[in-house]
Write a protein that binds this DNA or RNA. Structure first.
Lengths: 191, 191
DNA sequence: CTTTTCCATTAACATATATCAAGAAGCCAA
DNA sequence: TTGGCTTCTTGATATATGTTAATGGAAAAG
């Protein structure tokens, strides 16, 4: 169950000891979410960082009753409303799951606890934050520098699993356009 | 000269010792940039993280010969093309200075060196990365959830120094619209 | 001081993209 | 199998925002 996470952390901290791993493992919480359920609701404090063991989760804003997706995580990937998690303040995004999902949660207090008692985890925390920064930074770059068509092409080339598992209207908001416009772009690209 | 930086790090690492601070200070490089000059050019590897001692620096993309600003840093603030810095790969943004600027640079190799020999700096590195994540994440939130007018209002309310020190056409790109459109928005807001 | 360059404003016009509305297609549930 | 959701597509129309171009003022340069 925890193999994926252990491997992940061992890449972040090559010299992670068995004892330290055990301390981490003891703090992990396995959670199960049926398709469509919320992991975190906008306005509430995000409770943890979630490793997706099985399934598919999504992060999104709700604006004027409309959803704007900003991220997805499938098996082996992490997801969190990280701003809310770090500051323990109300989330501006919600997280839900698009399929039945099993997530492994590292709750906020447990993580702070680890940082205090096992400082080596600061190294993991640093690399995780750096990784998340790079992720959002590149997402930003694509939104600001590519055309809608090129942003869709990017998903085809680099995140093809999203095309297969995520409804098209969610992908549309992910690349910053309306569902109808994406439909037209697809039509044009087929020719 | 280094007072601001020292204070900054001591907030990140409350138990930073004099010895550790000295190790950091020895690795800092003071650099001087005349108005308009580049700190980092798109396509090159970003060499460091820059603390602005005096002056004003800017981060921006160049798309079809046009500039899109994504960040500014004044005295007491940090700036870097952090993706490029972390991965030591070509930058997708440039950094230049809008006024004569003195920056204090922590170069990449020196920073890695610190992480290796003084692991406590991982804690600072973690908090810096977390802070940068929050910064870009909220910038993203504003771009995705606010109208252009509200985005401009946000700058008035929260970053008024930018209104005073940054040309309006740069602010326009910062909030994601054309200079002409910002001019119209301002006119409408005055009424 | 001049002269030049940069920048903000304004107006007319162009266009990408959104919105609205209807129908078709796929999928799930009973 | 049937009926009802959900999602995708398509067309007509609307609109926010961009583009082009001209003007005037302010700031910088000489």
């Amino acid at each position: 169950m925890f193999d994926g996470i252990r491997q992940y952390y061992q890449e972040l901290i090559p010299k992670l000891s068995d004892e330290e791993w055990l301390q981490l493992e003891n703090r992990l919480v396995i959670e199960s979410y049926p398709k469509g359920s919320l992991i975190c609701r906008e306005g509430e404090n995000c409770k943890g960082v979630y490793y997706i063991h099985k399934g598919l989760a999504r992060l999104y804003y709700t604006v004027d009753g409309r959803e704007i997706c900003t991220g997805f995580a499938k098996e082996g990937e992490y997801l969190s409303e990280y701003d809310s998690f770090l500051t323990q303040s109300p989330a501006s995004q919600s997280m839900d799951v698009l399929e039945d999902t099993i997530a492994i949660n590292l709750p906020y207090e447990k993580m702070q606890d680890l940082y205090r008692n096992y400082p080596i985890f600061n190294q993991a925390g640093r690399k995780i934050a750096e990784g998340l920064f790079i992720l959002i930074s590149r997402y930003n770059t694509r939104l600001l520098t590519l055309s809608p068509e090129d942003r869709y092409q990017y998903i085809i080339d680099n995140q093809y699993h999203l095309i297969q598992r995520v409804p098209q209207y969610m992908l549309a908001s992910f690349i910053g356009i309306s569902p109808e416009h994406l439909s037209r772009i697809r039509k044009k690209m087929i020719r």
